[in-house]
């Protein structure tokens, strides 16, 4: 399964970034092969508005089936739903490796509604 982890740096050793829409990196991990690849999300961070929507489009294009993150605003949530991408919720900052392990062990709850007001712009 292809999982995207929102991260503050380019490897899974870095702490995860709890904010989906304005995460610095998306790390695409393949749970079967164990491979991970970083995607720099800086262009979306600089969007004049709608960063969360753009981020959702980006992870959809990466082929993700699940996003592991801490908070998702209403617009990003709607976009991820439309793309059929599930959201697994991490409540506190931890290394990306830890977040991925907990996801694989089914320890992370699935988010079924937006849990942040987001930042409007």
């Amino acid at each position: 399964m292809k999982v995207v982890i929102t991260a503050s740096g380019p490897t899974l050793a870095e702490p995860i970034d709890l904010h989906f829409g304005r995460a610095k990196y998306f790390i695409l991990a393949d749970t079967e092969t164990g491979r991970a690849k970083a995607h720099d999300n800086t262009p979306n961070l600089q969007a004049r508005q709608g960063a969360g929507v753009q981020s959702a489009e980006t992870v959809a294009n990466l082929g993700a089936e699940v996003v592991v993150t801490g908070s998702v605003g209403p617009k990003a949530y709607r976009a991820l739903q439309a793309a059929g991408i599930k959201i697994a919720l991490v409540e506190a900052v931890c290394p990306g490796t830890e977040a991925l392990r907990r996801f694989k062990d089914n320890e992370l709850p699935v988010l079924d509604k937006p849990n942040s007001e987001g930042h409007w712009v």
Partner: peptide
């Protein structure tokens, strides 16, 4: 979606409109 400067349309299988943007 590509021409929208305001990110008000996202392409997610089909165009998804965010009227508030």
């Amino acid at each position: 979606a590509a021409v929208c400067e305001f990110n008000a349309i996202a392409m997610l299988n089909k165009p998804l409109v965010f009227p508030e943007l």
